[in-house]
Every structure is written in C-alpha cells, then in structure tokens.
Design a protein around this nucleic acid. Sequence first.
DNA 1: GAGTTTGAAACT
DNA 2: CAGTTTCAAACTC
Length: 734
Amino acid sequence: MELNTPNKSHLISTPLSQFEDSPVFNYINNLSPIELVKSVHSSDQSLNSLAFSSPPSVFASPKLVSQRDTRSFLTRRQFLDPSKHGLSQVKDANSTSEGVSAAVKLSNSSAEQLGRLASSSSAKEVTAEPLNEQLELAIELPEALKCDIASPDKNIAPLDAIRTDTETEKGDKSNEKHFSYESEKNLRKICRIEQSEDEAGVDWVTLVSNVADAFYFESSVIEEHSEEQKLMVDPGTISFISNVLQIPQDNTNELENSNDYSEQETGETGTQSTGKNKEADKMPAVLSGTLLNKLVVNDVAAKVDVKGKKRESSCKNRIRRLVFEMAGAHKKETACQESNAYPISVQSDSEVDHIEKHSTPRISMLSRKGIGLHLNALATTSSDCKVVKIATLSSTRQETKTGLVLCDNEDKVIENAPQTSTDVSDDFGISSPKVKRPKMEHVGAACKRCNCKRSKCLKLYCECFAAGLYCIEPCSCQDCFNKPAHEDTVLETRKQIESRNPLAFAPKVIRSTEFASEFGDETNKTPASARHKRGCNCKKSSCLKKYCECFQGGVGCSPNCRCEGCKNTFGSKNGVEENELEGVEPEELEKKFSDVTSRDMIEEGEEEHADRPIPSETARSSIQLPMTLGVRFSRSQPAFGASSQMCPSQKLGKEIFRQPKFETHLQAIPEEETPEVLNSSCPPANGVKSTSPNCKRISPPHQGFGSSAIWRSSRKLILRSVPPFPSLNSPHQQ
DNA sequence: GAGTTTGAAACT
DNA sequence: CAGTTTCAAACTC
C-alpha cells in the first residue's frame, strides 16, 4: 500500500542522476572535506534548511515568512530521508537567522554543501555522541529555532553529525530523487501509521495516493509556481502541513526502527541538503509550500494545474483528517484514560523501551517539528513525557505563532492534559501497535466537536479554541474564525486572552503523577495526585457531573475548589482533605499551610486556599516551600507559555533534586503550581499516569532519567529549552 | 433533536 | 473584586 506513485518518484529521480554526472557535481565531490567543513556552520543547519524551504516565502508577509521558516524546516525533516540529510549537516549557524539570506546562500553554496557531503564521512563519526548530548541538542534545538537560528548552537553540531550518517548516500543521489524517495517514504509512514493507529478504516490508500499525487504535482509545478504558491499559502496551512508531515514521521520512526536518530536528525539537516540541491532543497520547501497551497490555498492558487487542484482539495481534507486522526488516536487514548479512570496505560512497556531508545531524537524532532501542539495539548505519560513536554514547549515557542492545531472533531483532543499525553506519544512515535488506542469509543466521547454559535470560536467557550486547536469540518460551529485562514485573528485573540490570563490556555488539570511515575511511585494512582489548577465552583452538580471541570478532568477536588456539596468521586474536597490530613502530623500541617499559601500566591486566580484545609499532598517537606516560591517567580512572567513552561520545568527539576521523597507524594504543591503544560505531560487525568505500568518504567536509561543525575541533566536541558516567555502571539519571536 | 441545566468565561 | 451576563457543553426528556 505504500505508495502508489513509484512512477512519479522515478520520473523525478532521473534528473538527479543527470545532475550527478554534471561537472559541477564532480567538482564538488572532489572538494576537500576540510574546506567543506569550514563552510559548514554548526548551529544552523536547521536554519539553512529553513532558509531553503522558506525562500519563496520571503515575499510573503513577515509573519508567514517566519512561520514558514520554522515550519518548513520541520516539514523538511520529515520529508528528508536520513540518508539524504547528510548534506544539511554542515551549514549552520551562519546562515540563519535570516531565512531568506540563508536560502540565497544555499543556492550559492550548493557546491560547498556538496563538498560537505563528500566530507560528511568525518562528520558522520560525530554521530556517536552520547545520547545525553543529543538530548540536549534536541532540546536546545527548539530554542535555536525560536531564535531564528541566529545563534549557532554547538549542540546542533552533534545532530548534524548524526545526520551525516546518511549524508554520504545522499551526496550521490540527486535531490529530486531524494524528494521522491522521501515523499514516498513519508507516505509509507503515513500509511503505516494509519494502519497501526487507525483501524477505523480510513481510506489511507487513497489518501496516500492523493498525497503522492500532490507531491508529484508539486514537483513538476513547483519551479513554475513555487513562489506564487508560497506567497499565497496560508500561514495556518504551513503549520498544518508541518503537523501532517511530522506526525507521520514520528510514527514511522517507530515503525521503522532504529534509524530514528539518523532519520530525525537527518531530517533537520537533511533539509538543507547540499548545494547541488538547490533544486533538491527546493523540493522539500516546495513541498511544504505546495502542500499548503493544495491543502489550504486551493482557492487562492488558481495558478496550479487543474489536476493539482483537484488533488489538492482532496488531499487537503484527507491530510487534515489524517493529522487529526492521528492526534485523535492519541487523544483517544487519553480520553479513554480519562473517561475510564485511565484504564489504558498510555505506553506499553515496549513503547517505553522504544522511547528510551529513541527519546532523544524524537525530542529533537518535536522541538523542530514545531508540531504546533498547543501547550494544552502537551501531555506526557511517563518520564519520557517530561522530555517530550519540554520539547513540545520549545516547539511551540519555535513556531511562535501558534501552537494551534487543526482539530478533527472526531478525534478532537479531549482536554489538554489528557490529550497531550497521547499526542506526545505519537509524536515520539511512541504509538506502538500495542498502544493502539484502546478505546476508540472513549475517544469519540472525549473528542468534542465544538458547536459554537456566537463566540466565533474565538473565546474560551470554544473547546477547540481553548485547546489550541483549529476548528475543522466536524465542528458544527457557526461563523467560525478559528481556522487557519484566520490565523492572524486567532493569534490575536489568543494573545488578548493570554494577556488577561497567561494561563488561559494552559491545562486546567495538573497532575503530579509524572514524577511519581518516574520514581516508580504508585501513590499517584489516586486522583488526588492531580488537581484542577483553579478548582471548580460547582454548586448544583455536586462535582459529580461533567459540568464540574475537576470531575471532567478525572481529578478530585482540591482546597482550591469553591464547590458546594462536593461529592467528586475522584476525590471530594472534603474527603481528600480528610484522607490526606489523617495521620498528618502538626508539623506537616504547618508545612501544608505554608505550601498552600505559597501556592496561592503563585497561582493567579486562586483564592482562599489558606482558609481551606490543606490536602496532604500539599504538605511536603519544608524543602518544597522554597521550590514553590521559585516557581512563582517564573510564573509571574507574562507569557503563559513561558510561565507554564518555565515554571513547571524548574519546579520539577528542583523538586526532583531536592525531594526525592516525593517519589511517593509528588502531587501537591509542585504539581498544582506546575504549569499546565508540564502537568499535561503526565497522562491524562487520573490515573493513567500513575496507574499505568508504564509510569513506573518510565525512567529511560537512555535519557538517563532513571537516575537522579540523569534527571538533573534533563533538567538542564529543560531549562535551556525553555525560552524566556515566548509569547504565542508573536510568531516572529524566535 | 429540542429544551433545560450548569458553570466557566466574559463583561460591567 | 464582586455581580451579572453570555456562552456552550452537559444533561434530560
């Protein structure tokens, strides 16, 4: 089923061979590796890649350009094969910050790049670098992207090295071939993903064929229309495309095994591809652009061939659907978890193992991908989740603009936290066959199609908007502006809302299980481990219906709740207090109070905590208190994303370090305070997290999470990755 | 599917 | 900050 378009790829490939034969090519090959290396700029291969993809976008509006750069970059990665990516390695920092300039450079320096490829062998060796470094790199990568690649990151170099492995092969191949090959590969991945994830019976084959057609079409037309198309492309589309491409890749990675590192990283650098490849380079960029056009801009791009248009439209819908479905699948899992009290473990053992093995690369991918996952969407199931979260955050920042993701109603993410977990797993390619969304039914329930009529889906009333998702067809909304076509409006609105409440888009439910799971803690299984950030205000539902956000999130009510007659089955405010307080010593109580107080200070909307009994969770060691304070500061910062991101990560790290004790009781303060994003990282609601066997395992040796030391390292990474409060609003922010 | 209930979000 | 209104989901019939 893989690809129906072998012919296409074949056609495309021919030019490459010719290219290779060209004198220029030979010349490049003959270039000494050393020289080539000089040309290389470590940090910014990615930048270059971006530049390649984005050149056309230059003409577009500034926003678009910036977005495209990052997005296109991400997209490219996906398309590029590990083998192809080699070319990209070298480039780096120099090029970058300016996507356009970089692009120009690329074309000019193609020869150099080719030479680099030749020299790649040396670079390839680098690949061997320790995973830790890779992780760091991966994490950092997002930052770099955010920065527009301006700052060359040393870290990046390793990635490049990794990429290089495949480069040698690439060097020989023509860009076009790569492109075709990649597209095919991607398609295959998609198909696989679908198969694995989607049993629903989507017509993947058709989708694939369509996609392939689209690509083909593009390849043929790109040169002619690339610029126009790009200009016309809707910004939202770009994100969309990136998402689509990315998702498949991730999944594929899993499926495809070991090459994750090479692939992922290669993908990044690969995009740059050697100079030879101006054309080749273009291809990925073009693809991204064309896809966008096809998907979104069909209307606009009248210039495209009729054929292409038709395909585009079909592809568009399908692609979207694909994306969402995938996301939805993840969501489904999460949803299931939530609804069922987390019957489903997010990750199977195998998954965990896989993650461990490949966590680093994946993380990097995520960050690079800029999947556009909203913070809300972010969630992690296991320790890996932590990393993932970070990556996502970074990615979000990178993309700067949005974080918005098209949401398929069917698969709509339930709620931030829960959803995220699955999403993340998918991103990582974690979604192993085993993991298949156990409960589609739940998913359906979890997935909500908004039905907004008066809010235009631009207010938090809209679930899609609140979740950082774009509305899609399944939605029954009226006068919807929450679509890629209105990205500017959406971003603007989001910005406004964030200005009012920086955590408006943060996950509402904070879960402490993450850490606990890592520590092998099972205590978190109890709903008490998770809490609603602000608490509910129920008066008539007794917190026994979905009207109650706590209940809906599968968490017990906390002292923060102002509910009346709370009977929350996940843990009533009173019940929790009683239970937790029982056996607590006076000292602990004091501590709890202090924690609560600190918490209150930290949390914006929260009120009255002091009055209320403090849950045992809150009570921790005296050490915690300081931590909390630290978190607060971070939170005070403006951008929700930043605050959430920064705070949580910091908190987490601190907690981990300082309080190993928490293994058993990690929940309390830190959790609540932790930014939603972080929280979300944990498996959705209830129990998924702690309950799932995976959680225990989660400590990935690979990443080093297993040991506290590792954690430290992870922490470092996290901190790095977290930019100082990037605001979603400013797409330009890098 | 229409109408009601509910509580969060938005507004004043 | 408190009170009120608006809104859309959740729920009921």
